[in-house]
Design a protein around this nucleic acid. Structure first.
Lengths: 199, 199
DNA sequence: ATATAGTGACCGACGGGTCGGTCAGAACTT
DNA sequence: AAGTTCTGACCGACCCGTCGGTCACTATAT
């Protein structure tokens, strides 16, 4: 016996559905995506989706959770506490950039419109954003404590840093900026650390 | 058919509808807003809406256009070419802040998720954003030419400045940051101009 | 090995609720 | 009374989720 699971294919189906959902939701958005289309894209029957997910909303939510999990995991792995803030920010930005380029469809869903297109998920998305903000405030606070970072309002700095990273997903994913990702990172970090004013 | 001039307060009705639409769309989002609710909120019959707008989508689009018009007008009025970049940015940021506080519902629509919740309007919204970016690039280029601004990649700087302003709508509108708007502006401009690194 | 019964993953036609848009007539203006 | 504006009951397209049925595969019997 194999792991006591059912017959046929039960294992891979869920993944197929999620994959198809990513494609469909990212190109048409939540409300314009049809369950039937997802089924067709996954090469299965519509009813089968409901063997794995209870509703369209729950499928969307599961997909988002797994996507954001992947994104946050990418960020966490890059976050090395002992390094100076400038290095940490650079790593984070590069991880962010890499994620955008490696998961273009997911990126569209996460950043296009920045939030979920359904009211039910707003609260959940806000919590995720709040958590991300808190992490950034932590990083900056450490920097202030170590004398690396100016003593401006922590929350303002964190908001700007977090939010401004999101500015690049579109050029990266939709235009040809992937060639110059390194240059982009240089300029971005330079600008955040030193500002735009000529000394 | 084209009727000469409207009797009654044809003008006023349209305004009522737009006003109600702002309320409804901003609190429920496009897809969860019902035409009947808009009619009820405006104190008119559902059919009347279709005397002034051809469809739900067209009503939404008209509302968005007028909202963004108001936003851009606010920004343009504050943009005084002869001043140094730092001043111009400060004026722009303050205008942005003021708009957010004076039009909280509109702000939610414009900035919550940053884009339109319907595929049909994506292209149009992208064009608006591109235009805004171009303006900012113009401002910064002038600054570079006059030797006020560092010679980093103009587009990167413009993206960050534009995008980061949007970081504050939530704290301003949804939390209690309106009291400290002035402090916020100080910190923000300081950070953009000089960066976060301790000299 | 062959037959028979059992299992549950899989399917898609269909039911039913929802809501954008319509239209015949009411209400109002001139 | 003629014209214009307003109205809400009504229509029907749309699409989510269901459910009875199918089928590939397994388990047991002979």
């Amino acid at each position: 016996m194999k792991s006591g699971s059912g017959k046929r294919d039960k294992k891979g189906k869920r993944g197929l559905i999620i994959e198809a959902a990513v494609q469909e939701f990212s190109s048409k958005g939540y409300h314009d995506t049809r369950m039937e289309q997802i089924a067709i894209r996954a090469g299965i029957g519509k009813g089968t989706i409901y063997e794995y997910f209870t509703s369209k909303l729950q499928l969307f939510q599961a997909m988002m959770e797994e996507s954001l999990q992947a994104y946050y995991t990418t960020l966490s792995e890059e976050d090395l506490h002992q390094l100076p803030v400038e290095e940490r920010l650079k790593f984070l930005f590069e991880a962010h950039t890499r994620f955008c380029l490696e998961h273009k469809e997911l990126t569209r869903i996460i950043f296009f419109d920045g939030g979920p297109p359904v009211n039910e998920l707003r609260e959940w998305a806000m919590a995720m954003a709040a958590d991300k903000l808190k992490r950034m405030m932590g990083i900056l606070q450490e920097g202030v404590d170590r004398g690396e970072i100016r003593d401006l309002d922590i929350r303002v700095m964190a908001l700007v840093v977090n939010h401004s990273m999101g500015a690049f997903w579109y050029p990266l994913v939709m235009e040809g900026w992937d060639k110059e990702a390194e240059l982009l990172a240089q300029n971005y970090i330079d600008m955040i650390m030193h500002g735009i004013k000529k000394p």
